[in-house]
Write a protein that binds this DNA or RNA. Sequence first.
DNA 1: CAAAAACTTTTAGTCTACTAAAAATTTTGC
DNA 2: GCAAAATTTTTAGTAGACTAAAAGTTTTTG
Lengths: 212, 212
Amino acid sequence: MMPGMSAQQPTSLRERQKEDRKARIIAAAKSLFIKSGLEKITIEGIAEIAGVSSVTVHNYYGTKSGVLLALVAESDRELLATFDATLVGKADNLTDLIERFFTLICEHTQTHLDKAIWRQVISASICGVEPRFGKLYHELDNRLASTLIAEIERLKDEGRVPEAVNSTHLGWALFNLQNARFIEFISSDDTDQERCLLNLSHDLGALLPFMA
Amino acid sequence: MMPGMSAQQPTSLRERQKEDRKARIIAAAKSLFIKSGLEKITIEGIAEIAGVSSVTVHNYYGTKSGVLLALVAESDRELLATFDATLVGKADNLTDLIERFFTLICEHTQTHLDKAIWRQVISASICGVEPRFGKLYHELDNRLASTLIAEIERLKDEGRVPEAVNSTHLGWALFNLQNARFIEFISSDDTDQERCLLNLSHDLGALLPFMA
DNA sequence: CAAAAACTTTTAGTCTACTAAAAATTTTGC
DNA sequence: GCAAAATTTTTAGTAGACTAAAAGTTTTTG
């Protein structure tokens, strides 16, 4: 199963061409970004490299942020795969879990995407000019939080987290906490991961010790 | 002491004129916003009402977001005054404190500003094109969090919060938690405060009961 | 009061996202 | 293969943020 493609291959030629153009557009955006950074990504530039017109880019992705979100969504799939390989079943307490989670996300951001893209995407998700956009973005958050919740369930089964807690609520609370520090992390190119991780561990240190 | 004015009155005529223009600009922005919403706020429009040129608006506030941030900063002062009157000394446990805090901020937003302005400002604080901007915004956060921390200290003195916790760390953690729900609140015009408050109380419910 | 300094305004552009409508092209269904 | 449908492209434009530099105005300073 290849990420990035719909489950069943499109029947009609037209559908296939559309998929192809869409893929070329995000590939173009990626290449442009890698070559010269976010400021140099323009709809026009993307269109040229992808071999379509700028109007088509708009038709497909709505806005520039829409294109960037597609980039993020793609890398999100890889991140979830990383989680399966590196996070699931590894941590043996809540603090450890959240810190691993946070670290993986930060590292993934630095290798696969870039702070600047996240800034743009999170920004757009808050400003939310587009209706689709917010929805898509929220789905990504949902998937990440679900991973966390599943791990909390496991810790509960193993007796490392009190039975009494609501895993879903705790999962979202911790996801939000961690996300606030992630936003701190991406907000400036100069903010380093270590610093944010330390802040996160202070957060957890103030909240969690009574739980054990 | 009037909010919105510097402590000492400016000596030179030039300084006074500058203050006056600045004040006219944000007053113009506010009136434009109240009349027709965020989309209708343009630098040009602000300049015209304020009786200055658009270039002057840029010189003073840098960007459109800069103007909006000034609006937020102004209302922030009122919010802190509200805190003194309505929050300080009122809560008798952590959950109650955070929920009051959150509620006051939401209500203040609805009466004094607007979700749309916050969206723009938070967005800009994340995207952070401007260096000054992020700094200013962070100061607002600092002031809000400090209020929270001071209240936590009080609860600790009253023996309602364990001595062992670090008030500063706990304060920031809870501020971040609450802020995540505030961002959820402002992200869409349709999201209602009750819903977000409920989510917040779930967050707290999952994290805090073991502390008491 | 006159020269200098400090600002603001005018002017003139640039840049880029985004949109609407007509024209051209290509696939599809019969 | 041909008409119809779907979709892209071309074309043309708008809007609004932001900038640089010259010109004009007002305050300051001696």
